[in-house]
């Protein structure tokens, strides 16, 4: 039933790069609220795409639609040409999309190491097999490697619920990486962090590009997103109001209006 389409039919702002993800005319309504209103964009291979917008602009609704937690009302989402609509969240994850959660949703009763180990791509897809074949060694090694990347290896045996705020946000990222994604969505990864932590995080996120083919970051912190993103999309009321290089988007009158004209947060 998978409908294969020509690669990269959607426009890419990045000259020459192919589209990893294309979103076409996506719509989602909640009662009287149009959370997503004919939203179209593409993520190119190898880029960090930033999405900004005031609260209620539809950013998290967008991630939820792409990752299958919500069913979009209309529109198309394709990952490398593979249609993602009507697929269950775990199928979408296995096709290569991972995410973090804005309101940190770690498995709080499990250890830091277990949080990563539990979703490791190689072992989580065949749950019953683990009863016959024990592979604690390789699982531990893979999980510790990921923790090490996010500077959490020394916390491995702590309960995830006992982590400090910044650490918990980094564990969210390590856990998402464990699913072996091609495209990573980060939902406000710097929220609640201080300036120093934010700067290190930006560096960490750029470094992820050797492991994933694309990163989409949703963020409020303008300085953070400007320093991090190759390209920006600005949203308001579920629509795309601007797209382009960071300096272009922040020069856009509509964007300035959306940010300054309304009380944010």
């Amino acid at each position: 039933m998978t409908r294969r389409t020509e690669l990269s039919t959607a426009p890419t702002a990045h000259g020459g790069a192919t589209s990893l993800l294309t979103v076409e005319s996506l719509c989602k309504r909640f009662g009287g609220l149009q959370a997503l209103d004919h939203l179209s964009f593409a993520v190119s291979t190898g880029e960090v795409l930033g999405i900004i917008g005031p609260n209620g602009a539809g950013k998290t609704a967008l991630i939820n639609c792409i990752t299958g937690l919500y069913q979009a009302d209309s529109g198309a989402i394709r990952l490398d040409g593979t249609d993602l609509s009507n697929r269950a969240p775990h199928q979408i994850s296995r096709l290569g999309i991972a995410r973090t959660f804005q309101n940190i949703r770690l498995f709080r009763r499990m250890s830091v190491l277990e949080n990563v180990a539990v979703v490791l791509k190689r072992w989580s897809q065949r749950p019953l097999r683990s009863l016959l074949l024990r592979s604690d060694g390789p699982i531990r090694k893979s999980a510790l490697q990921l923790l090490d990347r996010l500077r959490l290896a020394d916390k491995a045996d702590l309960l995830a619920g006992n982590l400090a705020y910044g650490e918990a946000r980094r564990l969210e990222i390590a856990r998402a990486l464990a699913t072996g994604p091609r495209l990573l969505f980060l939902d406000e990864p710097a929220a609640g962090m201080n300036e120093e932590e934010t700067a290190t995080l930006a560096h960490d996120i750029r470094g992820l590009l050797d492991q994933v083919q694309g990163v989409v970051v949703i963020e409020h912190d303008i300085g953070f997103i400007r320093s991090l993103s190759d390209r920006l999309i600005a949203m308001d009321y579920g629509r795309k109001i601007a797209e382009g290089l960071p300096q272009e988007v922040f020069a856009n009158a509509q964007v300035v209006d959306a940010y300054l004209g309304r009380d944010d947060d």
């Binding site: 969240p89 775990h90 991972a98 498995f107 499990m110 277990e114 539990v118 979703v119 699913t179």
Partner: peptide, 16 residues
């Protein structure tokens, strides 16, 4: 354990 603690997150991270 992951499914019991947060089904939605477990599903979003590839667990059936």
């Amino acid at each position: 354990d992951a499914v019991r603690e947060d089904e939605q997150v477990a599903a979003a991270l590839g667990i059936n």
